[in-house]
Amino acid sequence: MTPFTKLTSKSVILEQADIDTDQIIPARFLTTTESAGLGDKAFYDWRRGENGALRDNHVLNHVNTATHQILVAGPNFGCGSSREHAPWALLDFGFRVVISSDIADIFTSNALKNGLLPVQVPADIHAQLLDKPGLSITVDLENEQLSADGISCHFTIERFARRCLLDGVDPLGALLAQREAISRFEIAQIRAES
């Protein structure tokens, strides 16, 4: 996993509430056995019209992800299906941060494991950010601080996930290191059974 420490980038706005993971990546693309290369499928049906042609009037078709890596979205972002293809697609599209007032639990968990930072901010800050497309925002994970053009707020990332992100390590290693504790639990289970 690519470490995430601090990012300054411009914002892209999708103000709709309840953007579910079927919007982020439609189910018909889930027959893949890979996790790479899904950026082209991100928001596929929003970005493309009949016969798959890109819609000229969709904001995501005019994003330069070299400069715009922060997605600011309406409340309850990432609700619905548990598909990890959603953060995979967003990352491959070029986003590194999603900001909302409210981000769904499973999406948050999946995003954190892939280096996509889900930032939940208070409703008033959220409203200000939604109003300013292209705003340059700095997200500092070490200090859990968001700042942009006079806007400033603290956010919270679960501490262990934050450590993993800062170090760029996959939590699987930490779980594997607990093998003895897991074995003890299983032995107690077998004893209880007999």
Partner: peptide, 20 residues
């Protein structure tokens, strides 16, 4: 509860999950 694919890997390998 539902989990993502990374966590599917965690459970396959360790039968455990990190959870709050």
């Amino acid at each position: 509860f539902g989990i993502g694919t990374t966590e599917v890997g965690h459970v396959l390998a360790t039968q455990c999950l990190f959870q709050r």
